[in-house]
């Protein structure tokens, strides 16, 4: 009944509605049904994201182990013990070092190549759709599928080594402890580049044509224009690209698992997420794995802040 009366009032365009529905409007908004429309999504987020997020932190501070469903066991609070255990594990140090190598190769390569290709794409009109589609295809394809081809291409007797002839690296790419991680980084750059090209392409649309025109009037060449107009013009996109590329790097799992056969050779391409899987799920130590997850996320946050300073530094 009350809903009817509100509808009636709303139908009336009079300037002073009844005080009762007005108070309701003030409390829940003009269309309180919006709450009902949002409820399933909010419940989903709380159940699948917010609660597990808190749970991860809880697990990382307790002596946690797997039990059969419904069995109540004591899981004592252990303070920072899991964190200490993780940080003193040489494998963890190795995996963070690997990710460091990965990021040093992947992030600058991604930023440079995607900006250059986006810029070229922006100038050329012929075959534009074809180019856009071909750059984006690796991004929409399952990593598991393309990993198959890369294994084939980079194997001992693969096409890449056939092409290189005597220049081929001796322990081949993926089984070479110095080259394994760079190859993984190269693979991920190739796979993700299309997405970043589109990000830059969108950002390039926001640079006013007039800037290029007045620059060429002033005698600036194409290369000068690229560095003085294009690069600063897409700075906010660059911040986003470096951030997303870093997050992708920190999430690395499928590639070391499949491309280098489980982080080999000899742990030269393990990633923190791969260790979380090994420690937490295979060996049944979810507590240290959760601690590793927390450390990893904090690490990404710190790197993101540093990058923001570096890339977006000159922003007002």
């Amino acid at each position: 009944m009350t809903t009817d009366s509100t509808v009636g009032k709303r139908r009336d365009p009079g300037p002073t509605p009844d005080p009762a529905p007005r108070r309701r409007t003030k409390l829940l908004g003009r269309q309180p049904l919006g709450l009902a429309f949002s409820a399933p999504y909010v419940i989903f987020i709380l159940a699948v994201l917010a609660y597990p997020l808190g749970y991860a932190v809880y697990i990382s501070f307790h002596d946690f182990f797997f039990t059969a469903p419904g069995v109540a066991v004591e899981r004592p609070f252990v303070g920072l013990q899991n964190y200490i255990q993780v940080l003193s594990d040489p494998d963890v140090g190795r995996s963070f070092l690997n990710i460091g190598v990965f990021l040093i190769i992947n992030v600058p390569l991604t930023v440079a190549l995607s900006l250059i290709l986006a810029n070229a794409l922006n100038r050329v009109t012929r075959l534009r759709t074809f180019f856009r589609v071909s750059y984006y295809v690796p991004y929409v394809t399952a990593s598991v599928a393309v990993v198959g081809v890369w294994l084939f291409l980079f194997s001992q007797n693969g096409l890449i080594n056939s092409l290189l002839g005597s220049l081929a690296p001796d322990p081949s790419w993926l089984v070479n402890s110095t080259l394994a991680m760079p190859t993984v980084a190269l693979y991920v750059t190739w796979k993700q580049l299309g997405f970043f090209i589109l990000l830059y392409l969108a950002a390039l649309q926001n640079i006013p044509e007039e800037l290029y025109e007045s620059a060429s009037v002033d005698g600036a060449g194409k290369i000068r224009q690229f560095f003085s107009i294009t690069v600063p013009g897409v700075r906010s996109a660059s911040v986003l690209v470096t951030l997303l590329a870093t997050i992708t790097g920190a999430n690395l799992f499928t590639e070391p698992y499949l491309l280098t056969g489980g982080g080999g050779p000899d742990g030269a391409s393990t990633s923190p997420v791969f260790l979380m899987y090994q420690e937490g799920i295979l060996q049944g130590n979810p507590d240290t794995a959760a601690a590793l997850g927390v450390i990893l996320v904090l690490g990404v946050l710190v790197i993101a802040l540093i990058q923001r300073r570096l890339v977006g530094g000159k922003e007002d």
Binding site: V48, P52, Y55, I59, N251, G280, I281, P286, G293, V297
Partner: peptide, 9 residues
């Protein structure tokens, strides 16, 4: 990656 372990549990 932060949700991996708790979601699994």
């Amino acid at each position: 990656q932060l949700l991996l372990i708790p979601l699994y549990v």
